[in-house]
Simulated scan of single mutants.
Amino acid sequence: MSDISQATIESAGLRYPFERRVPGPAEIIEVAPGISWVRMPLPFQLDHINLWLIEGDEGWTVVDTGVSTDEVKALWRQVFQSGLKGKPVTGLVVTHLHPDHVGLAGWFTRKWGVELQMSRTDFLMCKTLVLDTGREAPKEALDFYRAAGFSQRGIDSYAARFGGFGKNVSRMPDIFRRLREGDELTIGGRVWRVVIGSGHAPEHVCLYCEEAKVLISGDQVLPRISSNVSVHPTEAYENPLEDWIESCKRLRRNLPDDLLVLPAHNEPFYGLHTRLTQLIDGHEEGLEKLLNMLDEPKRAIDVFSALFKRKIGAEVFFMATGESLAHLNCLLGRGLATVARDDKGVNWYRRA
């Protein structure tokens, strides 16, 4: 999750019905009949995540979990004791693979005896990334960041932090129930349809309830920031930004505009189509600025100023590099740029 390029994507024209009412620790706020909002802390630069509770006849379905820390577990225990009207947790949906969303999924399944429901790609990728815990960084990953223009100090920093994905993820369950585009979940007598996005995560689950006029959007649509769309060493040649843009267009085409959008970060809002258009246009503008920089050869770390208004410091350098590579790979995929690797293993991009 990022707040680097996202600040450059304006968010005017949205309406926030709960702007002055944000949940405190372990507090629950009902945002629509039978749909409640919990906010948990994150140990990152982005310091919170929104989690959603859908009330059913027999119990509650939890959408996303927060990271696996003692603090978040303690806050959840307070919610269980005082906020669920004496009902158990009977369902668990995770929107995608990132630790702030899936971190306590295994803990929930074992505590409540529920199945984890998420997309297949994100479940399997999460399991794979957790297995990196304790491993040394592979040579291919070091070469990836060398190609992006990292100094040896930067490569050493990456090697030192490699394998950290699993530290905020509790032991994942061995089985899950797969969610696909168009699947329907009936909770509390209402139907929630699965809508899949891509780009920020490979197969990101959103939940749409036509009757309630609500979209639980996870990180696929955020109001004040935009989700990080990055290229990583595991899929160095992929084009997630094109996937992201196409997902935004598909959501705008297939979903009505009058939904209350429940995002994973910031506040619930109205203005879905406006925000999707802003996200699409913002990235297209970034691509145009980037292309104009490539009249002279550039490395991935040379193009931050085309995409980010803020100064890129050490705390977001890896994330910014991943986003720059996503934009560069998009230009390559559109045939607008070329790349050549020099004898030091560094990639240089220029306009085609």
Rank of each mutant, 00 (worst) to 15 (best):
D3P: 00
T8S: 14
L14C: 09
R15D: 15
P17W: 03
P17A: 04
R20S: 14
G24C: 04
P25K: 04
P25I: 10
E27A: 14
I29F: 02
R39P: 04
D47W: 03
N50K: 01
E55P: 00
W60V: 01
V62L: 13
V62C: 02
V72R: 03
K73Y: 01
L75R: 06
W76V: 13
R77V: 09
F80I: 08
F80V: 14
S82L: 04
L84R: 01
P88S: 08
G91L: 03
V93F: 06
T95Q: 15
T95L: 12
H98N: 14
G103D: 11
A105T: 06
A105Q: 03
G113I: 05
S119Q: 02
D122F: 02
M125R: 14
K127F: 00
L131W: 07
D132Y: 13
D132V: 03
S157Q: 10
F162T: 07
N168F: 15
R177A: 07
G182M: 08
E184N: 06
V195R: 12
S198T: 12
H204D: 09
V205W: 02
Y208K: 00
C209K: 01
E210H: 14
A212H: 10
L215Y: 06
I216S: 02
G218M: 05
S227P: 04
V231I: 12
A236Y: 10
Y237W: 10
W244N: 12
I245W: 06
N254D: 15
P256V: 08
D257K: 02
D258N: 13
A264F: 06
H265K: 08
N266P: 02
H273L: 10
L276P: 12
L276E: 09
H283L: 04
L287R: 11
L287M: 11
M293I: 01
F304Q: 00
L307E: 06
I312E: 05
A314W: 07
M319E: 15
S324C: 15
L325K: 11
L328T: 01
N329V: 00
L331F: 03
L332T: 07
L332K: 08
T338R: 13
D342M: 08
N347T: 00
Y349H: 13
A352E: 13
